[in-house]
Simulated scan of single mutants.
Amino acid sequence: MNFDFKEEQLQFADALRRWVGRGYDFEKRRAIVRSDSGIDDRAWATLAELGMTALPVAEEHGGFGGSAVDMFVVMQELGRGLVVEPYLATMLGAEFLRLGGGHGELLAQVAGGELKLACALGERQSRHELNDIATRAEAHDAGWRLEGEKKAVLHGAAAGVLIVSARTGGGQRDAQGISLFALPADTPGITVTGYRTLDGMRAADVRLEGVLAPQASLIGKAGEGAAILEAAADYGAGLLCAEALGAMQALFDATLDYLKTRQQFGVPIGKFQGLQHRMADMYMHLEQARSMALLAAVRLAEGADGERRRAVSAAKYRVGQAARFIGQQAIQLHGGMGVTDELPASHYFKRLSMIELTLGDSDHHLARFASLPGFAPEAA
């Protein structure tokens, strides 16, 4: 299998890296995080101009039809730059629309950078089990009536359309009976309460009270949304793994530079063998995580459900372990400066910590991997 990136993919990565270095440096990011909205419209417009919003959208809707491997390249650079714009949330929402079919007008708006999406999936009791849904959708006239509440919706306050999971049948944790809806954020009955998260991103709680949704808002078929929900969540987890790789690489590079410049006893501390060993351990974690994340991207691009589940859970677990190790080591090697707001190291560590908790933490994906067929020999 050839793991070399194509020329077009490298060009995308280079364009993003140059933009981050030129117009989205660390101080610019800090200013955006402190702003009222937590995002920058000019930065979003630049992402659209560079073709990033159109990348995963099908050509028939004005996109480039990019694969998960193409997105892997982009997300690495966004992670390296600690970009806080709602790109991940929007691309995950676009994946829901793609898998469900239809909604071409929304996808065309996403491709053009005119529309931001957010995915309202998690609830107070659900933690990492996205099938645990208490929000209800009942048939009403020619559409649906939704009642419930969603928690920690990434960039929920910035979205023009919300992708909402609700139960139209079955028990609270059943796979059957899950339906998905694309709802304009200004629909009467929807209340969005935004807030800033630990890593400088924005999230929101979304309350749905008597929300009337037309039949056309349904994504896929009523009661059959579980497969779309799982596939899209795996896609999002794969993007998070790629973003984490970019952040870990940047944090590793920053730590290495610090060891070369910080002096103790008249020499750079990087000359101390004990610290060299720790950097070597960080590098091994980084490269192992890179291999697993790239394999997950390949499996997502291939589309086989069984291999996709296995590779994504393995990658999310390995990346989570690497992120924790590299983040903790980097903070310690930076000394007291490592935890200050003025140094990028603390911001990378916070973002990596949040990635670990998004769309399933390491324990969740380890348990999921172990539950898949073929992990353990069948009992006699």
Rank of each mutant, 00 (worst) to 15 (best):
P184R: 14
A152H: 05
G169E: 13
G320W: 12
Q109C: 09
G374P: 00
Q125V: 08
E49K: 14
V164D: 03
R127Q: 07
R42W: 09
A111Y: 00
Y235C: 03
Q264M: 14
Y258L: 12
V267A: 11
A134F: 05
I133G: 02
A182F: 05
V298Y: 01
D14M: 03
L115E: 09
R22E: 15
Q273P: 01
R262F: 15
H128A: 12
V83E: 13
R207Q: 15
A120R: 07
L218F: 09
G335M: 08
V73L: 10
E8C: 03
D234E: 10
M354H: 07
V206Q: 10
L10T: 07
A301T: 15
V73F: 13
Q288V: 10
Q264G: 13
W19T: 04
P268T: 09
I32S: 06
P373V: 10
P56M: 08
H103E: 04
E59G: 13
A304Y: 11
C119F: 12
M201I: 01
H347C: 01
R368D: 02
P373L: 12
E356N: 06
A213T: 06
A304D: 13
A314D: 02
D4P: 00
G336E: 12
A367E: 06
A139N: 04
W44M: 08
E27F: 08
A152E: 08
L106P: 01
M337H: 05
S126N: 11
L106W: 09
A94D: 11
L300S: 08
Q125H: 08
D25I: 04
F26Q: 12
D70W: 13
R196C: 00
A379W: 09
D40P: 05
